[in-house]
Design a protein around this nucleic acid. Sequence first.
RNA 1: GGAGAGAUGGCUGAGUGGUUUAAGGCGCCAGUUUUGAAAACUGGAGAUCGGUUCGCCGAUUCAAGGGUUCGAAUCCCUUUCUCUCCGCCA
Length: 426
Amino acid sequence: MIDLHDLRERPEEYQRTCQNKGIKVDVAAFLKLDAEYRKSRADFESMRASQNAVSKEIPKLSGAEKEAKLAEMKGLAEKLKEATSTLKELEEQWQKQQLLLPSIPLPQVPVGKDDSENVFSRAWGEVPKPSFDLRDHIRLGKELDLFDVERGVKIAGTRSYFLKGDGMRLQHAVMSLALDLLHKSGYTLMDPPHIVNWNAMMGTSYFPGGEEMAYHLDQRDDGYYLIGTSEVPVASFHAEEILAQEELPKRYAGYSPCYRREAGAYGKDTAGLYRVHQFYKVEQVVLCRADADESMRMHQELLGNAEKLMQLMELPYRVVEVCTGDMGQGQVYKNDIEAWMPSRKAYGETHSCSSFYDFQARRLNTRYKDGNGKNVFCYTLNNTLVASPRILIPLLENHQNADGSVTIPKALRPYMAGQEVIVPKS
RNA sequence: GGAGAGAUGGCUGAGUGGUUUAAGGCGCCAGUUUUGAAAACUGGAGAUCGGUUCGCCGAUUCAAGGGUUCGAAUCCCUUUCUCUCCGCCA
């Protein structure tokens, strides 16, 4: 949701954003509806005002005088009923359409049509150039007995898997390291609800628009959805609240399974653990003051935390500036982190760091009292800290050895009972 | 799953059709008093939207939505949530 005063001030800017973000919204048409809606509302309110005024007089009257007034009011009540229904109709349309309006990206965001036009920013780590033939994570998974996709598909359909043995232990180790890292950095760890209502999906701006991506509970529990990320419940945590300025920034780390239908991704990344229906993720969520500098500081902090974890896991990665066409409706600034995946001979997206300014907070109605006692919408941000099993791909592939074993990065060993290497079963 | 009771401002809590413009209390803010504080006294204060001559004016808001009525916190219907008891259960 955006500030409609701002939209009325500079509609061209919003229309251009729609083009840049690839969103099909006609701003001029919305403004026309907006004017109509406000006119209808003014009409309704003035009728209501006169009704309220007369209602106060009626109990003081009696006899014929009272009868006359009542008859008169009956006519007004009918007109009001009509006015109410047109207002309701307009309001419904207005509400629906304003949820589709995008926020304007920061000036430094590159304009582009899709992820092919994202801009490389910087890289960390050495891309391995081994003297032996590299195995991909699927082969490593088989030889080291880390996961079983065939049986996953047997039990739960495409894009399903079992993690087992050291595969499961490795994932658990990654999550533990990740949670410890954020705990030490002062983040509040959270295990949130995995099933949420429509308001939470709308408030975090996944709905409307992302319905096809979410698992929707059946008629018996209609109106509830499986989360695709803990950002949804965690960012909604303070919905409808007014916080004190001193409490900000709020730093949260949500840990949860994530469920995604991956509709529209048929045939894409079908092999292995890259794109699956269910995965685990530690997600960083921040609520801060409505201040551009503060928001950017927090953005860099979130990005820095993710980079630190990548470095602890000794994984080569790069950071990209995401272009307008690859941004969401509400995001104003976004960086992806991509890990080097030898089997793809390419970097693959593992993290997504987003600044929303007040876009989500307006939908969620999360505010704070500023220094002047005024209620102001918070700014929100979020970034992946780590998601698994996708992270197992670079982890296994980058750390493999000529004999088919995989070396466990030092930082993970304490979480795997000191184990240093995963060796083939044979 | 069965039976019952509820949802009122920051909190507590009255209010069963019209001076309720939501009482009273607690907490909060300001002033008086005080060396300062406390206490006492006096006054003030919710949120959202629209309009505005920037003084204000109007509408909405008593869980949510609909209905009855000239008029609804109050009556009716639906939904959501909370609590108590019973059943089931990791």
